[in-house]
């Protein structure tokens, strides 16, 4: 691709990244969450693919490593559910909500200002799902783009 596209991508990519991570982190307060933020970050990665071409990205980022990250995100998500089983006696029990510790404050009922320290296990789940979705969508798009760009497949 041309230099203009590369420069534009270089400038835009960090902003997409930060916006996506913001959406993931504030999923329990503002519109957004793991899926939405993950999709935004993955779109930024798609931008990278467009600018630098898939063989370059494929050389620098291993698809195996991305798949491992995706597995880790999924394992993290289900582990939080299982922690609910251990500490809260039911699967997906929100054992941190209202406990006063990490993410444990309860917002006052009705219209309130943002308090980051709320939501119980929800921010953790958002994070796990965010990692999973970023890695998953990026690896899909990376492998497909690489396969469409080369002639011989095996």
């Amino acid at each position: 691709m041309t230099k203009i596209v590369k420069t534009t991508a270089n400038i835009l990519f960090p902003f997409t990244m930060i916006f996506g991570l913001y959406v993931i982190a504030h999923g329990h307060l503002t519109p957004g969450g793991g899926f939405q933020g993950g999709a935004i970050v993955a779109s930024g990665c798609a931008l990278l693919l467009v600018a630098y071409g898939s063989p370059w990205v494929f050389d620098h980022i291993k698809d195996k490593r991305l798949a491992t990250f995706e597995s880790l995100g999924a394992i993290g998500f289900i582990t939080i559910g299982l922690l609910g089983l251990i500490f809260g006696a039911v699967f997906f029990g929100n054992f941190l909500a209202g406990s006063g510790s990490l993410f444990g404050t309860t917002p006052a009922t009705g219209s309130t200002l943002a308090d980051f320290n709320t939501g119980g296990v929800l921010p953790l789940m958002n994070f796990a799902v965010g990692v999973k979705v970023i890695a998953g969508l990026f690896v899909i798009i990376l492998v497909m783009a690489y396969a469409s760009s080369i002639k011989e497949w095996s």
Binding site: V23, P31, Q36, A39, A42, S43, A46
Partner: peptide, 10 residues
């Protein structure tokens, strides 16, 4: 947001 990110872009 999800539709814009997933549907329109990806």
């Amino acid at each position: 947001i999800a539709q814009a990110g997933v549907g329109a872009c990806l």
